[in-house]
Design a protein around this nucleic acid. Structure first.
Ligand SMILES: [Mn+2]
Ligand SMILES: [Mn+2]
Ligand SMILES: [Mn+2]
Ligand SMILES: [Mn+2]
Lengths: 219, 219
DNA sequence: TTATATAATTAGACAAGACTAATTTTATAA
DNA sequence: TTATAAAATTAGTCTTGTCTAATTATATAA
């Protein structure tokens, strides 16, 4: 598989995981940073290869085989991200872009040895789970800040968006992984959420932001 | 620069370093594993970019700028090879092929942090020197087995060929880096060389092989 | 039911990088 | 000097992945 095909497959997987089922052409184009015409071409090609279920003019989803392929690409992507932050000390805001270039190198030997070197990690630097060699995703129960009720306390465990602009905002807010937060109020007007960090600072984030931050409820 | 352009530039550099000056189209084609027509196209493109001095029908060499580019590509290639063997424990016969895919990722941050992580190494797993961030090659005086005189003792320090078939042969002979050898006789007929390892085994290698093994004379 | 906006597809073009087949250059040997 | 073999180049084609512009399909609102 070419690097481009792999990037499309990865974006289809994550797009669907984020609730876009079936996936649509314009959405895929936006995710990969291309025009819809290009996405149509690629969808047709991936369909011929048996990786997509495609109903012309009505969107598409991954086949069983396509999903396995996607999980392997995501596995490589996230393992490299972790290596870059943990070992090479590269800023977590920059590793996603680098991992996009590394993910296309498809060697089981390389990837499995990298995984062993990293100590069989479960999470990447953005709190995303890493599929194992068989394509299995560790099961974790976690929700979005947006799903929390008022006064409910939780701990930040990850992010749905690895873009450097989003992560810079997260850093500015101090909402890093492991930080304990509490929802102090819900804004009825536009569904923003007010949250507090360790009873000190308190601020409001938009609905969109609240949906991009994963938390686990404190026991 | 595309991955293909970089591979061509790298092969031009190493080809010239191995004595092919000026570089010729058929030779470059052979090194990159393509047909001469493809090499001609690429040479024209690289010339337009100011990386080659090219006299149509008479070969080409790297410009000053082309040489600096080449050294950076070789730097990345060799650092990755070392990472793959040292850290990921991948067989030295396999890392060259993997490094060919990794070398195209051109990020100073990535490469310099990788170099620091590896401890600013001087040699890659095949005994080839690694250019530093400025493109400087550590100076080393070493010769080929073929240059040794009879009874002259030397230590193996590297190889000119990283192909897995050649390295498998080297392993079979036991001519690994650090091994002390002695030339026991020169075969006049076809310029083969008989060498001995630590007074035990003794065998004959061809001229071509003797020219691919670097040694340093024992003090 | 019909008009309209959005999404999707098609047609045609282009750049990169490879190939084959044909032609031209160059160097060398007779 | 001329013939020949080797090397190089050109011309034309193909695949991948992208684009723009034009057209078609779908869903929704009037
Ligand atoms: Mn990422
Ligand atoms: Mn990530
Ligand atoms: Mn190598
Ligand atoms: Mn090497």
């Amino acid at each position: 598989m070419t690097a481009a095909e792999q990037e499309y497959i990865k974006q289809i997987y994550t797009g669907i995981a984020d609730g876009h089922l079936p996936m649509q052409t314009y959405m895929l184009a936006e995710l990969v940073g291309a025009k819809p015409a290009s996405a149509t071409d690629m969808v047709k090609k991936l369909t011929l290869k048996g990786l997509l279920n495609y109903r012309k003019n009505h969107g598409f989803s991954l086949t069983e085989s396509g999903e396995q392929v996607a999980l392997q690409i995501i596995r490589r992507h996230r393992l490299w991200e972790l290596f870059l932050t943990e070992n090479l000390k590269i800023d977590w805001k920059q590793v996603h872009a680098m991992a996009n270039e590394l993910q296309s190198i498809n060697s089981d030997l390389l990837v499995n040895n990298l995984e062993a070197y990293l100590g069989y990690p479960v999470y990447d630097p953005h709190g995303e789970v890493i599929p194992d060699a068989k394509g299995h995703l560790p099961q974790t129960e976690r929700m979005e800040i947006y799903d929390l009720k008022v006064n409910q306390g939780a701990t930040v465990t990850g992010f749905r968006d690895s873009g450097s602009a989003f992560l810079a905002y997260i850093e500015k807010l101090g909402l890093l992984i492991g930080v304990r937060i509490q929802v102090t109020s819900l804004i009825e007007y536009n569904h923003s959420v007010e949250i507090a960090i360790s009873q000190v600072s308190s601020f409001i984030i938009t609905k969109e932001t609240a949906q991009k931050i994963y938390v686990t409820i404190n026991e």
